[in-house]
Nucleic acid binder design. Structure first.
Lengths: 346, 346
DNA sequence: TTGTACGCGTTATCAA
DNA sequence: TTGATAACGCGTACAA
């Protein structure tokens, strides 16, 4: 086992000083052609690579980005990571991933663990519990300590940092307007509780679409799912809530859901109630997931361009890291959504 | 902006030496109660945290695990990451993620980038191109340099390291035997090319099941999909290959597919050809994905317990990292598969 | 042209 | 009880 070789070892072997070796390897012209060749040959032979940790300590830069997300087994988030990794890698950065699992304390712990020198900056999407608590001290602290943050998707407007979001409002509005254009008059909304920022914005988009088409919004048509039913093994609870919605409002002819799971569950319930899709009811879901395409019928969606969000987030963060002195003002980048029509709409 | 505070700064402020501060904070009883209190109070006030990078350099341990996987937008891999992260976090480790995107060179570059001191060990699943090339020098080098590797799922048997796999052979055999038990006599196999280790093993399981039930295997019933059709936007190619299979063998009454995409595509083609599922044809797919449950009809699967694989991988690696001196022999842990019966089988 | 010394932040050993 | 020093691996300013 040949351990990693260091400058010191090379220096010893070659009977020169560490400094000489270092310079020779960086092609400094202080060094004679002769020793340079000798050192480089030796270094190559022993496959010398500078130690990242030593460099990080010296440069006070780790070239590593910390990602904190609520969940990784989720198409949206894994696509964002892919986008981040793509850009980061291209620019010589690594990514370190922490999962909050939607928990405030895990989010805080994870951030503290990374903030002590392990990374240069954060890219994160807030956990639900954090949004509910409205306790953002860990974000402010990080920023105050000079560790920049980029928030994506689930962002906190009060926090001064770069942000990447989709036009949740417009995306939802477009979707509902599509339903209206295709003849729906009684459109239900299946959404999250209001403390989830994106859920709230999408709800507003829904209301706005109805309003601008002079359709009266009815509270009975809006179903706000509580968080506990979001898990894959709590589908029954979710479905029974939706079933009640349909039974209380048998004349629903359109459904807009703020995520994939809600949309698919709604389609499932509708089928169970012997409704034909899209003839009796049409569906659109807000999602970037895989299920939509493979559902029966395939689900029309508002796509969020998750990978693009990741790429943009990484660009923003890296730009800020590499232009620290310039103290540019924070920006919020809005990624366009895209309406993808499939067979759940006419 | 109050920057991160260091031992040196505390020492200066308090007019004591760095060493004293360090000891006081670690509750060394060399230090007088008095100064200890003073230092700790100050440290708490300024929220002192030791710098991870400095610790890493000193201890020659980063407490970070490098994960290299072919793809992250994939339920199996993201579940594995979740499992790794869970165990790693619990033991005070971070995880850094690199994506090979199924490419040999990206795998090598990513590993080299991390191997220079950034991490203590690797958990990885080989890219397809690496398996095809059969060039494993980057793995051997890493191991030779004292950087341990744990391979999962797509493992290389020649490489001396810990491994975590599912019983691909047995899992496939169980699945096919289930089809046989439910009356299938002409069972097709949709698999990968042979260089993908898991595909090959699952193929062997299929053959073994047929053999032990005296069913003759027919080459015409085995479809080996080439890699280029694995992408979500190459579904047409995949589907047309499957369609040919069905048309050439109209009496197929069972299908075993080595992954979710193949299984779902096969079901789709079958429906298109007006076959009823599961009356005319039954399907089982090898997968841990989300699509199976939501498919119509829902797909029976051989589950791989991806998260458990991740957890076990992390345990193996961390154990080895923390018991380096003991030089334990390498082990291969086999995670049991589980047959989950849904509506695509009778 | 080469070598020395310092500093990045920490801990540990040894001297005061 | 406290302080000074070395070491982890590197790059670089400055001295030789």
């Amino acid at each position: 086992m040949k351990q990693k070789v260091t400058l010191k070892q090379i220096a010893n072997e070659l009977d020169v000083s560490i400094g000489t070796v270092s310079k020779a390897l960086r092609n400094s012209k202080e060094i004679s052609e002769d020793t340079r060749q000798k050192v480089q040959a030796f270094a190559k032979l022993y496959n010398y690579r500078p130690n990242n940790i030593a460099l990080s300590l010296k440069n006070r830069k780790t070239k590593t980005i910390g990602i904190i997300i609520p969940e990784i087994v989720h198409n949206f988030f894994s696509k964002v990571i892919r986008g981040i990794e793509l850009v980061a890698n291209k620019k010589g950065y690594n990514v370190i991933v922490g999962l909050s699992n939607e928990s405030f304390s895990k989010e805080v712990i994870n951030m503290e663990m990374l903030a002590n020198g392990s990374i240069d900056g954060f890219i994160l999407s807030t956990s639900k519990q954090t949004m509910l608590n409205q306790d953002y001290h860990h974000f402010t602290e990080s920023i105050n300590q000079g560790m920049p943050i980029v928030m994506f998707d689930r962002v906190i407007s009060e926090i001064p940092c770069d942000k990447v979001i989709v036009d949740d409002f417009e995306g939802a509005k477009k979707a509902v307007e599509q339903l209206i254009a295709k003849g729906c008059g009684k459109i239900a909304l299946i959404t999250t509780k209001d403390y989830v920022s994106v859920g709230k914005l999408r709800t507003q988009g829904y209301l706005s679409a109805l309003d601008s088409h002079k359709i009266e919004a009815a509270a009975s048509l809006i179903l706000k799912i509580s968080e506990e039913y979001d898990s894959e093994d709590q589908l029954e609870g979710l479905e029974s809530e939706i079933e009640n919605l349909f039974k209380d409002n048998p004349d629903i002819d359109g459904v807009f859901a703020v995520n994939e799971l809600y949309a698919l569950s709604a389609m499932k319930v509708a089928r169970k109630l012997n409704k034909t899709i899209p003839e009796d009811i049409q569906f659109i879901g807000f999602t970037d997931g895989m299920l939509a395409k493979h559902a029966t019928p395939s689900l029309s969606t508002v796509s969020q361009h998750a990978q693009q969000m990741g790429e943009k987030s990484a660009e923003l963060l890296i730009h800020r890291l590499e232009h620290e002195e310039e103290e540019e003002s924070y920006q919020t980048v809005i990624i366009e959504t895209e309406l993808i029509l499939r067979n759940s709409t006419q």
